[in-house]
Amino acid sequence: SKGEELFTGVVPILVELDGDVNGHKFSVSGEGEGDATYGKLTLKFICTTGKLPVPWPTLVTTLSYGVQCFSRYPDHMKQHDFFKSAMPEGYVQERTIFFKDDGNYKTRAEVKFEGDTLVNRIELKGIDFKEDGNILGHKLEYNYNSHNVYIMADKQKNGIKVNFKIRHNIEDGSVQLADHYQQNTPIGDGPVLLPDNHYLSTQSALSKDPNEKRDHMVLLEFVTAAGITHGMDELYK
């Protein structure tokens, strides 16, 4: 796709999030870079409003799984890469995230190029959380598991539907599940690639910047598309 050509090198990323969870309002600002050749993201996020009212790991899918245009699609799968094909005009990404036995996040993001920078601007609203639950009670460990993110075409809306389940580790050794339902639709009216069913395999590492006084998260992530085999004719070339 034409959009794919915008991702040949390292691309700067800007992320802006405004959130409200159970009436606790907050903002997060992030910057870093993405390299789609390797499916690599390096980002640093800062809570610009003081202390973040929710655990950082609960925002990873909104912040970095928010820029799935940096996923590495192998050559034989490039015609299934909706995310890059929607660029530079970008796409709207909407999600509902259900935390098992707790509340939910609803998010709406616009992901697009502004100049040479890929920008992810998000509004997040969280409701029905227990004040002493795993999320508002800050009981999650500061780490992140690997996940597969399942993608299918949504021809009606000229976009994709995505769903997956995140496993958050809790300090007591148990797990907090979070079910994600995602819809992506193009902002522009140019042609986009509608994929066959496949998935993104994601690995994320969270860390801290020892010199950063503000509440923050440093993230390194690798994302690769998989799940579609080479056609038989490919094998015999």
Rank of each mutant, 00 (worst) to 15 (best):
P57L: 02
S204A: 09
S174G: 14
A205S: 05
G103A: 03
L136Q: 04
Y150S: 05
P210S: 07
G227R: 14
M77L: 09
G137A: 08
K2Q: 14
N163T: 15
L194P: 05
P55S: 10
H147Q: 07
S174T: 15
S201C: 14
F113L: 09
F99S: 00
E114K: 10
F99L: 03
F7L: 07
K208R: 08
N197H: 13
Y38N: 15
D18V: 12
K78R: 13
G50S: 02
C69Y: 03
K155Q: 09
S146G: 08
Y142N: 04
V218I: 15
D116A: 14
D179V: 04
S201T: 14
Q79H: 13
F98S: 13
L200Q: 04
T37P: 10
N184Y: 01
H80L: 14
K213N: 03
R108H: 05
T224I: 06
D196N: 12
F164Y: 08
Y38S: 15
F222I: 08
V111L: 11
H80D: 06
Y91N: 01
G90A: 00
T62I: 02
K112T: 11
D179H: 09
K25Q: 13
N134Y: 12
Q156P: 09
E94V: 05
D81N: 05
Y38D: 09
V11M: 04
N163S: 08
M152K: 08
E171V: 09
Q79P: 10
T202I: 15
V54M: 05
G190C: 12
I228F: 10
E5K: 13
D75G: 09
T37I: 06
S207G: 08
H76Y: 12
N211I: 06
K157G: 15
Y91H: 01
R121L: 05
D172H: 08
E110A: 07
D132V: 06
L43R: 00
P12S: 01
L6P: 07
M87T: 03
S64T: 05
S146C: 08
N148T: 10
D196V: 11
T49I: 02
P195S: 04
L200R: 00
V60E: 00
A225D: 02
M87K: 00
V28E: 00
N120Y: 02
V60L: 04
N163H: 09
Y150H: 08
G3D: 06
D209V: 03
K208T: 11
F113S: 01
V67E: 05
